[in-house]
Amino acid sequence: MADALVHVDDVTKKYTTRGGSVAVLDHIDLEVPKGDFMALMGPSGSGKTTLLNLIGGLDRPTSGRVTAIGQEISRLSSRELAAWRSQHVGFIFQFYNLMPVLSAAQNVELPLLLTRMNKAERRRQVEVALGVVGLSDRLKHKPSELSGGQQQRVAIARALVIDPELILADEPTGDLDAVSARDVLELMTRLNEEFGKTILMVTHDPHSAEVAKRIIHLDKGVLSQEVRV
């Protein structure tokens, strides 16, 4: 598929431990079209995070190819991968992973420190991103002074601020109450529909998965089914 943003092509990922070598992902093929919002479900330990890491260029496959945003990232060095991530991918985690010592604005600014933007430009971008997630009035708050839902929205702003083509979210609502979770999912939908971001979201929760355009299941290292909602 020519307009796919992500191609996962016959990818195997093995972890070698003392007990021997285990294939967490076993000859996986997956395509994520541009502009898609895909939910990835599966039991714990099925390899969802592993797959997300491969697509986001955080890790390299044992065999096979991963191409994302026109780049065969499975062939890049870790240095090139870091540069590539900083320009093209936004990450959202279950536990937000904000820097506790930095304010919301400083947290969102972090990825921009790797760009050539000057201070004023960075400041403007940060304000825009925090505005999108509805936290314009919390710029100076530390993570500890924000609710879980607000912290996750700061994390979403941080993912958004570099204007990435691809957003990868690993159980973004896994640690949130129902109301906050709904806010975050609404935000994800907006990012997809309004800003045209391609989103791949891991979730355990079938309700959360329903906001996605597609749901795929990963089980025992194999992508077993694909459901169109």
Partner: peptide
């Protein structure tokens, strides 16, 4: 946090 910085693309 260092893991997060690396994820965001901070070089070693």
């Amino acid at each position: 946090e260092i893991g997060t910085l690396k994820t965001l693309g901070f070089q070693n």
